[in-house]
């Protein structure tokens, strides 16, 4: 014989503000105040338990009476009408009056439930961790918001830094942005200079045949050749996929420019090896010299060098053509 404690109803309410007492016939005898708060305006007392709730777990049972007479029967209940808040609980048989005491709690549905029913701290028993759980949910979402803001700021800063960078990340050469700055400085200073505009031939075929990694390798190889063949102070730019511009300060003699172009083309004609494969490319060059213009303009010079480059291409590639100043 186990010892028993008789508890006044007030005590049960304090301990389990979400409880239901059920008669053996399945009718609700009394409910805790928090549970009643979930159905304001509906008199739960006197109704059949199965009229109000759908019993989701256990999935099957013979009769409610038999189910609730099991000592410590675990239950999962949903309201039959909206909001259908899920409740979990345990049923315990009681002797006087004969029936069951069902202790309920929200479980994981507590976050929705406090929204749906405007619950306060006082609606939960002092030992229920629901309030701590709600605290944690709110604290975590505040932290997440803060982290999201931090990520957005960092993302913005990264984009801005990339925008401001002057370097092409694949080859380490200067990029188009740097090219514009250098060209306008040279023109401002009225320095004589030349532009060599190089476009690779058959580069697409390398990419298509051996893949992008091979293509990247070729671009890095080209960058190395250009750096080796030019002077330390020349500015070498990768200004597009397989397009390069060399800005040669103080170098405008056509013979020297032609020699330089040919040295570069000769070296580009030798295949680059990538993972044992021979990647064959060549290069076409267009040359524009600032001294051919009364008033050099970087856009005009780049356009003329580009036209000369296409002349090289249509003349059979792997050659250099000098621009005719417009």
């Amino acid at each position: 014989m186990t010892s028993s404690i008789r508890l006044p109803e007030e005590t049960i309410i304090q301990l389990i503000p979400m409880h239901i007492c059920v008669h053996t016939d399945g009718r609700i005898r009394s409910v805790g105040p928090t549970l009643q708060k979930l159905r304001p305006g509906t008199k739960l007392v006197g109704r059949l338990l199965t009229d109000i709730f759908e019993i989701r777990r256990p999935r099957t049972f013979d009769s409610l009476e038999q189910l609730l007479s099991e000592d410590g029967q675990k239950l999962s209940l949903y309201f039959k009408d909206e909001p259908r808040t899920q409740l979990k609980g345990v049923a315990l048989p009681i002797e006087d009056p004969k029936g069951s005491l069902i202790a309920l709690s929200f479980g994981i549905s507590v976050v929705e439930a406090v929204e749906d029913f405007n619950l306060t701290i006082g609606d939960f028993s002092a030992t229920d961790l629901a309030v701590e759980m709600l605290y944690l949910v709110e604290a975590k979402s505040a932290v997440m918001d803060e982290l999201r803001r931090l990520n957005l700021r960092l993302q913005g800063a990264k984009l801005a830094a990339e925008e401001q960078a002057f370097t092409d990340s694949l080859t380490g050469l200067k990029n188009r942005r740097a090219m514009n700055v250098v060209l306008s400085q040279l023109i401002e200073a009225r320095s004589p200079f030349s532009i060599l505009h190089l476009d690779l031939d058959f580069f697409k075929a390398v990419n298509d045949t051996f893949g992008h990694a091979a293509g990247d390798h070729v671009l890095q190889h080209v960058a190395k050749v250009l750096l080796e063949e030019t002077r330390k102070d020349d500015v070498i730019v990768r200004c597009g996929g397989d397009e390069f511009v060399m800005i040669l300060n103080g170098l405008t003699q056509p013979e020297r420019l032609r020699d330089l172009s040919h040295r570069i083309i000769d070296r580009l004609n030798k295949p680059a090896i990538y993972e044992g494969n021979e990647c064959r490319i060549s290069g076409s060059i267009g040359v524009a010299t600032s001294t051919s213009y009364a008033q050099p303009d970087s856009d005009v010079m780049l356009r003329d060098a580009d036209n000369a480059l296409y002349q090289s291409k249509s003349d059979g590639r792997a050659r250099a053509t000098f621009a005719v100043a417009g």
Binding site: V114, E115, N118, L119, T120, I121, V131, L134, E138
Partner: peptide
């Protein structure tokens, strides 16, 4: 007033 639900 303090409601457990932030939205409320």
């Amino acid at each position: 007033q303090f409601q457990l639900a932030r939205k409320a």
